[in-house]
Design a protein around this nucleic acid. Structure first.
Lengths: 236, 236
DNA sequence: TAAAAAACATGCTAAATATCACTTTTTTAT
DNA sequence: ATAAAAAAGTGATATTTAGCATGTTTTTTA
């Protein structure tokens, strides 16, 4: 990961390509980040950190997909969000100096950078523009969480599953054959929606019957986003 | 609300008594706050702002209780949180410069201060210590939201109602006769738990039969917090 | 303080969802 | 490539929860 002095550094490149929050760091700060980061590889199923862990830093995802989840009753996961290229995870715990309130596990093989806590805290304390962006980021996540609470509380499982599929299309996109660019098990889908695995299986079959999707093993082909939208009953 | 120059100002007093985030403002800043705030009175049922509104400032609650909620299907409210003395609402919308993602309505008669947006933004941009506290505040709310998502997704209505009652005891306390210091309608309770009003009514009756609570109209006497804890199945 | 409105309560029924048990298919690892 | 493990799928059933109708009580307001 060493770069020529004159060339654009790894972090600089990543920050600008992904429009990440690090775009708001100064030149010096981003070079410091580039120097101090620890580049790591993870495979599907690997755990980055567990709920309750005291963590000494946070992660910026360079490639791959990570699920962030809480562990509930009988060890059942509740997926809170996914993180992908350019996004950071575990920053909440670093900033509030608390142990992790979620766990993070690799969904699709990842390249991530581990960044020591002190660095984030220094950036936040010394760079108001960056600090402001961090606030915005957190506020944005908060708004999303609030919406999700309302959805889970008020919508049926069918509506939520449709909504989750739409959201996955928005976040990860579909390829030229309309296949969703993220591969999740039925159990993982159930752990986003907040329902039983069997319920997801049954509803996906229904959606298939209704020609909204097609199923090829774990791959989901999204045929009718409008139809899913209608089912999901999205407000406003 | 005018004070002697030499005396402690209204905002100064409030900030220190309540340990609010404004404690981290400088002397000058807090006097500026004190000068620019607009003190207002609201009665139960009054609306401070509605979801979707562009807002020109945020609110600091001096007394009373406000519910912050989202409006879901068929206008059903989902209560996200309550705000009371020393707490601020609508700051998220101000900081992210978005329209309000929630509505705020008075639950118990309130004295609140309205504070113009610019002031908060200036404080955040110029005072790193304050900014850091705002980040912590947001992170804390985010952690709570994530927990709540997991609860709603995984727990039964019965478990959630028990948990909500415990949380209300923690947040608002009980008086010498063990009556909860917040008075909510059954519908409002249902809108926290995320269930139908009838379900809350039935479950409260069950809790009463099981000697966990007593009901006197809208007032709830909490007899057995341990019992409620057991029902709520709180993790860790 | 009386009338109106809102909230509370309860029984009945229907719908949604979870759970269990088991088979088949797909994926993973040797 | 094949055995083992994991995931997907399905049917039957139980449980939970919602929805509706209706009567009662409490609260609000004129």
């Amino acid at each position: 990961m060493k770069q020529h002095e004159c060339s654009i550094s790894f972090c600089d490149k990543c920050a600008f390509e992904t429009n990440s929050v690090f775009k708001y760091l100064t030149r010096d700060e981003i070079e410091r980040l580039n120097y101090e980061k620890d580049f790591r590889l993870y495979k599907r199923g690997d755990i980055l950190y567990n709920e309750g862990n005291r963590i000494s830093g946070f992660y910026c995802i360079n490639s791959g997909i990570i699920k962030v989840f809480k562990t509930g009753i009988d060890g059942k996961e509740q997926i809170i969000r996914f993180a992908r290229r350019g996004e950071i995870i575990a920053y909440r715990s670093v900033l509030s100096n608390e142990s992790a309130c979620t766990s993070a596990k690799v969904v699709e093989d990842c390249q991530v950078c581990f960044i020591p806590s002190e660095l984030l805290i220094q950036f936040v304390k010394n760079n108001p523009a960056f600090s402001f962006e961090m606030i915005k980021l957190t506020c944005h996540e908060l708004a999303e969480a609030n919406s999700y609470i309302t959805d889970i509380a008020q919508k049926t499982v069918r509506e939520r599953l449709a909504e989750v599929l739409i959201q996955l299309v928005k976040d990860f996109g579909i390829d030229d054959q309309k296949y969703l660019r993220i591969s999740l098990t039925r159990e993982e889908l159930a752990n986003i929606v907040g329902t039983a695995t069997e319920s997801v299986i049954r509803l996906l079959s229904e959606f298939k019957t209704d020609k909204l999707i097609e199923l090829n093993g774990r791959r989901i082909k999204v045929l009718d986003v409008k139809g899913l939208n209608k089912i999901s009953n999205i407000i406003i």
